[in-house]
Write a protein that binds this DNA or RNA. Structure first.
Length: 969
DNA sequence: GCTATCACG
DNA sequence: GACGTACGTGATAGCT
């Protein structure tokens, strides 16, 4: 980390913060979560790899505010402890670890040594006890402690205590979920305070460790008993007075067992400490041993990162530099292409075409065993909501893929010979029945590229696919905005295949043709279809194994796992819901607009003295400026006159009647062509509703975008345009409900730039533009408020005196004076801008509060125009992107929260989330549910940043409902 | 396929 | 000191 950044953040001397890594528990989880990789010698290293990236990530946080100053790894040394002595059955029925995990245990030690980290392994002491002892010892010294684990037993330690050395805090970090666990999280999970957790655990027991607890008492009952009675002893004592019940009997009978369990779950906090706390200080990671280790196990991507950042050989280096300084490496044209695992070249001729049930069953069984399967669907058309399923392809490994045709007609098309036999295929119904358990199995990760599409296609066949991963979203979360010279910056499969695998997949048009000669996929001959479809699945499989391990290295795990990945099925469901539009209303408006256009057109021709194409800016410009002689400059390299709204309004102000008529004509044409006509055409004949498609990778900042049709730009600002909103309606008996974040970007700016005056204003519920006007001008009236509003937005968008001058119609000097005044009144803003730009120049990317990166390669451009443009975008991206992260989190939590409140889908109805418009969510719900649903929706939205981010400003929500989208505002 | 325009946040 | 600069999108018409 560069000196200036640390100087800014580290004004106070950093508090000691000990990280204790529960290594043994981690590798079990890593094993079950990660793909079964092997090193060059064939030793399985999937869990080791996960462990290595975890340590890397922790070391990366070294200089961060809440990062480690001290770190140690604790491992279990032997299977015997004091618990076996008092209870021989303890952990007696543990199954042996999986065969391919056993050889990884010693490698965990190697990995730890490779990072030069202290390693604690004591015989006859369990890791949990050792962790507890170290945690308490550090806490007593007034240190903060983070236990890197998600073991529920360790949650007993969470909390804050005043020791001889000051106040020390113990929390936990679940690196797989990237979640901090503190008192509220424990309370949420177990319903009791951490210090009461031992009592709950004693009652409920633990089948894995063979802790008996009380038979028939599970987490729910245990938590209830303890929270009601205060403690285990009190709960047991209260049992004789309970009214007769099964539970009473069990408590009376199980008293001894519970008391034994209480001892077993108690952590020993007084183990002798083999390594002194001070010796756990983390100064830096010497690169030598680490490089050797990474190399030996074929962790090429990590090796490369280490090389890229290590500087002079042998120098002790801080991993923060190593892992983060990726700019240099990635700026090279091939920089983004990492060494690949040793896969054979893709061979399209090797794919299987699955045409009978037996073969399909075998593929499905193998997929179940493999636990990770790449899936791709082929369909009759692009629109997922209308598309029919034509086939499914699966990939289980490199060179191990198949295509399952399901809806193919005979080659050359169905129309020409309707009696032609179809190719042999597993009947669709049968295939769906066989695939459903695989695609819905919790134990198997289904990997897609743009899975939202496939989810929608498969949902039509009653398959609720999950859990999924998505290589398109992974790519977006790591590489948004990143453009490599000559390689492009998109996230399409073909592009990623070129970029990361160096392989050009078969082009769709090669298979189906293009333009008028295009044929539907169902008419492609099976051999060709198999090559194309199975290749897509295999490419997805390979991309997954390339991209997934990169996620932690790029710091993209949190945004992928906590924001974007959970959103995929949610957005898919919104698309399937669609929204009802009133066709008659739209049609009426179309006619009305057409009549008006004809009238205005006549008037324009009269003014112009001739007929011309009003919609042609070129012709219009010539009429206005050449023929009629109005003043107005040329524009751009096209040499064409500008005739946009600003120009025409100016002309209108100067008395040119034709200008306002053209504006009116344009407005009508826009509304008719883009909305009233197009929306009618977009109604799905099967559902009678309009189904937009959201792009999850469309906007570099992390926002969604909406296409076919775009429902994120339906008019609202003018009365005439709002008539179109009136055509968006609920089904009978329902209403539409709109909930939006009020001024979310300004609130985030106030938080992120730490502007006290703005934070106060939001906390007090003031009108923010009025407050700005008061700060800037000392008085608030219509004019000063309007100017303040303009300036507030200018700030969000990256300000310039010329831009502001243009908007406010003042001289740039005066605009500059206003900017200076703004910075003076809100000093945090200028600091934020300067700091943000410094960071982007240094790192190459901006970051949101949730860690979403947007890359700005042109921030260093020699072209001042280009560079300035990047700077403005870079100032805006963290704010716009954080807002996007927040509403995405709200969306992912919304339906579960409504379901918890009993408001979920009921006989196909209930509350349905239909649309997202950046800071607004639109729902359709039975009128009778409005009162119950509104507070739930409001709470989920208002709390969406928590617990990951605690904002200094409240998030205000405005909610309305009515018989149309317009009425809901 | 590109440019200009304008709808939204 | 300049920069025919407010940020982020998508659809349409006209024109090459």
């Amino acid at each position: 980390m560069s000196e200036n950044t640390s100087a800014e953040s580290a004004t106070d001397s950093p508090k000691n913060h000990l990280y204790l890594v529960d290594g043994s528990a981690y590798i079990f989880r890593a094993y079950h979560r990660l793909p079964p990789l092997t090193n060059p010698e064939g030793t399985p290293v999937g869990a080791v790899y996960g462990y290595t990236t975890m340590l890397w990530k922790l070391a990366e946080d070294l200089d961060k505010a809440d990062g480690p100053t001290h770190l140690a790894v604790i491992l279990d040394k032997s299977s015997h402890s004091f618990r076996n002595d008092i209870y021989p059955e303890y952990k007696a029925h543990r199954p042996d670890p999986p065969e391919d995990l056993v050889p990884q245990f010693p490698l965990i030690r190697d990995a730890t040594r490779a990072f030069s980290l202290p390693l604690v392994e004591e015989p006859d002491v369990e890791a949990d006890d050792m962790i507890a002892s170290y945690a308490r010892a550090a806490q007593a010294e007034g240190w903060d402690v983070t236990i890197v684990s998600s073991d529920k037993d360790l949650m007993q330690l969470v909390g804050e205590l005043e020791g001889p050395g000051g106040k020390g805090r113990i929390d936990m970090l679940d690196t797989m979920k990237d979640a901090r666990i503190f008192i509220p999280e424990v309370e949420e999970k177990f319903g009791v305070r951490p210090e009461q957790l031992g009592d709950v655990l004693a009652l409920m027991g633990d089948s894995v460790d063979n802790i008996p607890g009380i038979y028939g008492v599970g987490p729910k009952t245990a938590s209830k008993l303890i929270s009601e009675n205060g403690s285990l002893a009190a709960a047991l004592d209260a049992a004789p007075d309970m009214k007769k019940s099964k539970l009473k009997e069990r408590l009376l009978e199980g008293r001894e067992s519970a008391e034994l369990s209480r001892v077993l779950v108690t952590l020993r906090e007084d183990c002798p400490l083999p390594i002194a706390l001070d010796d756990m200080r983390l100064d830096g990671i010497p690169p030598g041993p680490l490089a050797e280790f990474l190399e030996a196990h074929g962790f090429h991507s990590l090796s490369k990162r280490l090389e890229a950042g290590s500087g002079s050989p042998g120098r002790k280096t801080n991993l923060d530099n190593v892992a983060r300084d990726t700019k240099g490496a990635d700026a090279a044209p091939e920089g983004n292409r990492q060494p690949l695992p040793e896969w054979p070249a893709i061979d399209r001729s090797a794919y299987a075409c699955v045409q009978d049930e037996a073969a399909l069953e075998e593929w499905i069984a193998r997929a179940m065993a493999t636990r990770i399967v790449a899936v791709d669907t082929e369909t009759s058309e692009l629109d997922a909501i209308r598309a029919d399923l034509v086939g499914v392809s699966l990939a289980l490994g490199a060179g191990d893929a198949c295509y399952i045709p399901l809806g193919h007609l005979n080659e050359g098309g169905g129309g020409s010979d309707m009696f032609a036999e179809k190719p042999k295929q597993v009947p669709l119904e049968k295939a769906i029945a066989l695939l459903k358990p695989l695609l819905e199995s919790d134990a198997v990760i289904k990997v897609f590229h743009n899975g939202k599409y496939d989810l929608n296609v498969l949902a039509r066949h009653g398959i609720a696919v999950g859990p999924i991963d998505d290589t398109m979203i992974m790519s977006f979360d790591m590489d948004a905005g990143r453009q490599l010279e000559g390689i492009g910056g998109g996230h399409g499969m073909d592009e990623l295949s070129e970029r990361h695998l160096g392989h050009t997949p078969m082009a769709f048009k090669e298979v189906c043709g293009t333009g008028k000669k295009a044929i539907p996929f169902g008419e492609v001959p099976l051999d060709k279809a198999t090559e194309y479809a199975a290749e897509d699945a295999e490419v997805t499989w390979r991309l997954y194994h390339h991209l997934k391990p990169r996620l932690p290295l790029e710091g993209a795990v949190r945004v992928y796992e906590r924001v974007d990945r959970p959103l995929i099925p949610v957005v898919a469901q919104m698309e399937r819901h669609g929204i009802k539009v009133d066709r008659a209303q739209l049609s009426r408006l179309s006619e009305e607009f057409a009549t008006e256009m004809a009238r205005v057109e006549k008037e324009i021709f009269a003014e112009a003295g001739q007929e011309f194409t009003i919609g042609s800016p070129k012709q219009l410009g010539e009429i206005l400026f050449d023929k009629l002689g109005y003043k107005g400059g040329r524009k751009g390299k096209s040499g064409q006159y500008s005739t946009d709204q600003a120009v025409l309004e100016k002309l209108d102000g100067e008395g040119a009647a034709i200008a306002s008529k053209v504006l009116e004509y344009r407005q009508l044409a826009k509304l008719k062509n883009t909305y009233t006509d197009a929306l009618q055409a977009a109604i799905n004949p099967d559902t009678g509703r309009v189904h937009t498609s959201y792009s999850l990778t469309g906007a570099q900042t992390g926002r969604l975008s909406s296409t076919d049709p775009n429902l994120q730009n339906i008019p609202i600002r003018t009365a005439i345009g709002r008539q179109i909103r009136e055509a968006f309606v609920p089904e009978d008996g329902n209403v539409l409900l709109a909930a939006d974040y009020s001024q979310i970007e300004l609130r985030l700016a106030a938080h992120m730039a730490d502007v006290d005056a703005l934070k106060e204003a939001f906390a007090a519920g003031e009108d923010i533009h009025s407050r700005t006007a008061r700060e800037m001008y000392g008085e608030v009236d219509r004019d000063t408020r309007a100017a303040a509003k303009t300036i507030n937005f200018a700030i969000l968008y990256g300000i310039s005196r010329w831009g502001l001058a243009g908007r406010l119609d003042v001289e740039p000097d005066e605009a500059q004076a206003m900017i200076d005044r703004y910075f003076e009144r809100f000093p945090g803003i200028q600091k934020y801008i300067v700091h943000t730009l410094e960071r982007v120049r240094e790192k190459g990317y901006s970051e949101t509060l949730f860690g979403r990166k947007t890359w700005f390669p042109r921030i260093t451009s020699k072209n001042p125009n280009e560079r300035a443009g990047s700077e403005r975008a870079a100032i805006n991206a963290p704010i716009q992107g954080t807002s996007a992260d927040i509403i995405k989190r709200a969306m992912a939590r919304m339906m579960p929260a409504l379901e918890d409140a009993g408001l979920g889908p009921r006989d196909g109805k209930g509350v349905r989330m239909l649309l997202q418009v950046h800071d607004e969510l639109v729902f359709e719900l039975p009128e009778g549910d409005v009162a119950a649903a509104s507070p739930v929706i409001e709470r989920v939205m208002a709390e969406a940043a928590l617990p990951a981010v605690q904002l200094d400003v409240p998030l205000g929500i405005e909610i309305g409902h009515g018989a149309s989208w317009d009425a809901a505002h």
